[in-house]
Design a protein around this nucleic acid. Sequence first.
DNA 1: CGGTATCCGACACGATACTG
DNA 2: CAGTATCGTGTCGGATACCG
Lengths: 126, 126
Amino acid sequence: MVTKQLTGLPDEADVRRADSLGREIFSDVANKWALLIIEALGEETLRFSELRNEIEGISHKMLTQNLRMLERYGLLERTVHPTVPPRVDYTLTEPGRALRVTIEGLCDWTHRYLGHIEAARRRFDA
Amino acid sequence: MVTKQLTGLPDEADVRRADSLGREIFSDVANKWALLIIEALGEETLRFSELRNEIEGISHKMLTQNLRMLERYGLLERTVHPTVPPRVDYTLTEPGRALRVTIEGLCDWTHRYLGHIEAARRRFDA
DNA sequence: CGGTATCCGACACGATACTG
DNA sequence: CAGTATCGTGTCGGATACCG
């Protein structure tokens, strides 16, 4: 990892590795549940059950699964309060908040072009 | 559709309908293949086979399937040249190009945080 | 309450073969 | 070359049940 610095240029193998890693991240993150979770969290701290209520239609399983994935990628932080009943809070980390900004853009786009899309779809279906 | 304008306020049913439609669009568009296609197209016009080569790992089937969906939503335009062998070109429409801008943001994000994510992942896996 | 495990149906996806 | 159709399978994802 350090030896590369000597040339000042990343070698080909590195670029390929970074690319495939990038693709992997992209593939994982660019799924609706992950994006909806990030969007739902926003700037706040939410509990598991709050997220579940916030995100319409997500199942218990998909929520935990995606939360783990996002935690693994360091996009959100999970804090367990050792109370009874247990309480678990989720908050976006800095990378997570950065991602959220771009998702915001996606949501805006959806709203802005809702009409266009609806119309285009009707045209196409005919 | 026009009667609503009289009140000046969208009624509840409308909001719900727009929301569910928005969710539907979001769910369809927020999948890796659709996003990668938009990203690959960019400002250019590409043929089916060029897209296939451009997007690593996409199958013939997934490509056509997603192209149809995006065309149906009016995000890209499909022009068939009646030559032999046939030639089909795909170009982003205005809504498609607008979407592309936000996807660009997603790609930038991926590259910027590649290191963070890789590190976080190793930490998590331990 | 939050998490894990198991089961099982649905369908996403790839491979293949066939048209214009 | 681009598209459609069909088939098989692996994975996704929901439902359920059970632990801390």
